[in-house]
């Protein structure tokens, strides 16, 4: 465990927990894409298939449980909670899961470390995580004005991506045989998807104005 990895995990954890806590407190999920949240729940469910078979560390197991629990709780709130679901922008959040899930599944069947159910699901979860933010970014573009909640959420997710890349560079130089092409390439693609958002986020922060995305 290095400092970049820990910082990455913590910002990732904060992004999910901040979102869950705010939805729970203000009973609103306006601006949040249910499609993206469902894709993340699927990402965690397919990646952590090893949770009961391979023990890595107490930290690892607890974090996996928190990510699974919080991502499914968010989906539950947005679909089932009678106040929260009323604030959901259903008409604007039209991205189809299918268009992301199917290509990722096909890619995972072809590109994986080993052709076993667990390894294919692991590769699938990495490919899907890389593109799962797309429905959220489309929703941001459509609704234009972004409240603090959504801005902070995407900012924390972007910080998590950046820290993980530093973590991979660090591990590559400090650990023998640390090579994970699938993780790195999908992680890089995911980070690039945030670059555009970050450009506008920092500009609005620098100029101290409310964040607006161009059409």
């Amino acid at each position: 465990m290095n400092i970049f990895r820990l910082a990455g995990d913590m910002t990732h954890l904060m992004s999910v927990l901040v979102l869950l806590l705010k939805i729970h407190t203000i009973k609103s999920c306006a601006g949040i894409s249910l499609k993206t949240q469902e894709l993340y729940a699927l990402v965690f469910a397919t990646r952590y298939l090893d949770i009961f078979t391979d023990f890595i560390s107490v930290y690892n197991t607890i974090m996996k449980l928190i990510f699974l629990g919080s991502s499914f709780s968010i989906v539950w709130y947005m679909r089932r909670h009678k106040l929260v679901r009323r604030s959901y922008d259903k008409e604007q959040d039209t991205f189809r899961h299918f268009f992301l899930v199917l290509p990722c599944l096909l890619l995972a069947l072809v590109m994986n470390e080993k052709f076993t159910f667990k390894e294919v699901m692991w590769a699938f979860s990495l490919y899907l995580e890389a593109v799962a933010i797309l429905p959220q970014l489309v929703l941001l573009q459509r609704t234009k004005n972004i409240d603090n909640l959504t801005g902070q959420y995407v900012f924390l997710l972007g910080a998590y991506r950046a820290f993980y890349i530093f973590n991979w560079i660090y591990r590559y130089f400090t650990e023998p045989h640390y090579v994970h092409w699938i993780t790195w390439i999908s992680g890089l693609v995911q980070t690039l998807l945030y670059a555009d958002f970050f450009y506008y986020y920092f500009n609005s922060w620098k100029n101290n104005v409310k964040l607006h995305l161009p059409a």
């Binding site: 990895r5 990732h12 391979d54 890595i56 974090m63 990510f67 692991w122 993980y164 045989h177």
Partner: peptide, 10 residues
């Protein structure tokens, strides 16, 4: 040189 132990990231 990849084994399951290397999949220690989240």
């Amino acid at each position: 040189p990849q084994n399951n132990h290397e999949k220690d990231e989240l």
